[in-house]
């Protein structure tokens, strides 16, 4: 056997070595989303006392206090009062506002960071993708509550998320630069949603 075919055979035989298992990663809930789900499931089971305890002792309330400056006034005390009066719909509305505010702050921060002209196209896409993941993780929790109250906003938000995702996946420089536009739209839509939801009378009243 001549050297070249022997080498080719050797490489072909050894090529599976390039395929090695390095494990998989499944994104996990953070302490805020975990606490939200605990409260939500307690409310669905009509265990208002459990939901109240989970809210009072959990990360969600701590985050509400920490970000009080970006939230409508009285959101935390109103959520607590709604839990104490066993008002599930009001709790849902207030939590919807909270998560919409978290997603909006992330959209604003993403827009601010992506405005940095020194970022390479790859860095811009990577940063945009990470912010989008974080925003979606929060918004996704309350999308049903949003759509049941304001279907148009819910649809517009999902379209903006889709558009932004398309831009972070693209390899074209001009397309990647367009990412800020849907991010701004998301923050505006969420701001409007927060304002109207905070001002509106309760759905069941």
């Amino acid at each position: 056997m001549s050297a070249l075919p022997a080498l080719a055979l050797l490489l072909a035989l050894a090529s599976p070595a390039a395929a090695h298992h390095v494990g998989t990663y499944t994104p996990r809930d953070n302490e805020i989303t975990t606490n939200f789900k605990q409260i939500k499931f307690s409310l669905q089971a009509k265990k208002f006392d459990v939901a109240l305890r989970l809210f009072e002792e959990g990360a969600l309330r701590a985050a509400m206090r920490e970000t009080a400056g970006t939230l409508p006034a009285g959101l935390e005390s109103g959520t607590r009062a709604a839990l104490q009066s066993n008002d599930g719909l009001e709790v849902e509305r207030r939590l919807m506002i909270f998560f919409a505010a978290l997603a909006r702050e992330l959209a604003l921060e993403a827009d601010r960071q992506l405005a940095d002209g020194k970022l390479s196209r790859e860095a811009r896409a990577a940063t945009g993708r990470r912010f989008l993941e974080a925003m979606w993780r929060y918004y996704n929790l309350v999308d049903f509550a949003v759509s049941s109250r304001d279907n148009k906003s819910s649809t517009a938000l999902r379209l903006a998320f889709d558009e932004a995702e398309g831009y972070v996946k693209t390899t074209s420089a001009s397309e990647a630069d367009k990412l800020r536009e849907p991010l701004r739209r998301i923050s505006q839509l969420l701001s409007t949603l927060i304002d109207t939801s905070s001002a509106l009378p309760r759905r069941d009243s």
Partner: peptide
């Protein structure tokens, strides 16, 4: 690691890296 200085974003990046770090040791 592409950390951006925002806890909600960075925690996920760190979590993935720590899961893979642990996976490397296990493997």
């Amino acid at each position: 690691h592409g950390l951006v200085g925002v806890r909600d974003v960075d925690e996920r990046i760190l979590d993935e890296a720590l899961v893979k770090f642990d996976a490397g040791l296990r493997l």
